[in-house]
Amino acid sequence: MDDSDERPWWLSRDGDAGGPGETSDAADHESNAQDRSAGSTPGSTQGWDLTSMLGMLGSLAGQWWESSGAGAHAGHDDPADHPDCVICMGLTRLSASTAPEPVVLPAVRWLPIRRP
């Protein structure tokens, strides 16, 4: 692929650079440096090697995991005991929507037995 081609915006690695055609000069400079350093690396794509992409995805997943509260949820046993937890609340609502309340027969009161 020709380096002079305009790169997709999502490869800018610059969060401030918005959409296509808005890549800043600084970002271009950084990208070119990346290209030079990684140009001969097998598996490199548009100046991004697979390792760094996976690292970025992993980082994003970690941030999402932390922000979602899933880490805290891992210690929750009964969803009904944690109404503030989003995941527990979802699980509670899901179970309530799929299973009706079970019909429970009234309990038998067993009597004392006397054997004369």
Partner: peptide
């Protein structure tokens, strides 16, 4: 083996 109890179908 015998057990005896009462049960209410109507509260």
């Amino acid at each position: 083996d015998v057990e005896v109890g009462v049960w209410s179908q109507d509260p």
